[in-house]
C-alpha cells in the first residue's frame, strides 16, 4: 500500500513541475524545484518498501527450487528459487496456480534429484511450468586440469 502511495506522490510531483513549466507562475517555481528534489528519491523509497515481497513477473528461464508454498485459497503459488546462471541470491516469485496443477507438478518433481523448474510464458498470467532434466556442466572436460597437476617450467 505504502508503495502505491509513494508512486502516487511521484506522479503528483511530476505534475507540479509540468504545471510550473507551462504556466510560469512565479510562486510555483520554488514548489516545483522542491517537488523535483523529492521526486528523485521517491522511486528509491518505494523500492525499499517492496524488498522481501514476491515478484509476480518471473522472467522466463530455469530455476533451482529451494522451497515452494501453495496458497490454495487464492490459487497462488509462491516459489523460493535461485535463477540458474544469475547471481546466487535467491528470489521469491508468485504465480497463479491451482491445487490440481500443483499436485501434478510435485508428483513429477519427486522423480528428479536436482529440482530445476523451467518457467515460460506469462501472457495473461498463464505460466507454463515444468521440471527439466538438468545435468550440471562438466568443468573438467576437455584439457582442463587442476592447477596443482599442471606441469611446472622445470619439469
Amino acid at each position: 500500500m505504502s508503495y502505491l502511495v509513494l508512486l502516487g506522490g511521484l506522479v503528483g510531483c511530476v505534475l507540479v513541475i509540468l504545471v510550473s513549466v507551462f504556466f510560469k507562475w512565479r510562486w510555483l517555481k520554488p514548489l516545483a524545484v522542491a517537488a523535483g528534489a523529492v521526486a528523485l528519491w521517491l522511486p528509491l523509497l518505494s523500492q525499499l518498501q517492496t524488498l522481501g515481497a514476491p515478484n509476480p513477473y518471473p522472467p522466463d528461464g530455469d530455476y533451482r527450487i529451494i522451497s515452494s508454498k501453495l496458497n490454495d485459497a487464492h490459487d497462488m503459488l509462491y516459489i523460493f528459487a535461485e535463477a540458474m546462471g544469475a547471481d546466487t541470491t535467491p528470489r521469491m516469485y508468485q504465480i497463479p496456480f491451482d491445487l490440481d496443477r500443483y499436485e501434478r507438478l510435485t508428483d513429477t518433481g519427486a522423480d528428479y534429484t536436482q529440482q530445476i523448474l523451467r518457467i515460460e510464458g506469462g501472457n495473461g498470467d498463464d505460466y507454463d511450468i515444468v521440471y527439466v532434466d538438468y545435468t550440471p556442466p562438466d568443468l573438467l572436460k576437455g584439457d582442463m586440469m587442476r592447477a596443482y597437476r599442471s606441469p611446472r617450467p622445470d619439469d
Partner: peptide
C-alpha cells in the same frame, strides 16, 4: 518508476 519495480521485487 513502474518499470523499475519488478527489478527488485522478490529480492530479500
Amino acid at each position: 518508476p513502474f518499470f523499475l519495480a519488478p527489478k527488485t521485487l522478490g529480492f530479500p
